[in-house]
Amino acid sequence: MLKITVNGNPLDSSAKTLAELCLELDYGKAKIATALNGDFIAKEQRVETVLQEQDSIEIVAPRQGG
């Protein structure tokens, strides 16, 4: 299990890649974008993005804005 942070919350995950993490967290086909340790990770790169201990992941979606 990896100790990582997702959207600011600590999480123990067995996911090996960012794509697996998104599935594990039930994002499925949700309209999301991702960043790893402050760097944008494109949708097609998630499958080859290997997670490591202490990684910080941001998962965002469209929201109201000014």
């Binding site: 959207n7 039930d26 949700a30 999301i32 998962i59 965002v60 979606a61 469209p62 109201q64 804005g65």
Partner: peptide
């Protein structure tokens, strides 16, 4: 104008908002 915010896996409110914006038929500036 729209923004990006953290998405909860349980609630997934982003899709509903996006569906509404698409129906407005105007250009989107994030």
């Amino acid at each position: 104008t729209v923004s990006l915010r953290r998405e909860s896996a349980r609630k997934q409110t982003g899709q509903g908002f996006w569906d509404l914006v698409k129906k407005l038929g105007v250009d989107v500036l994030p």
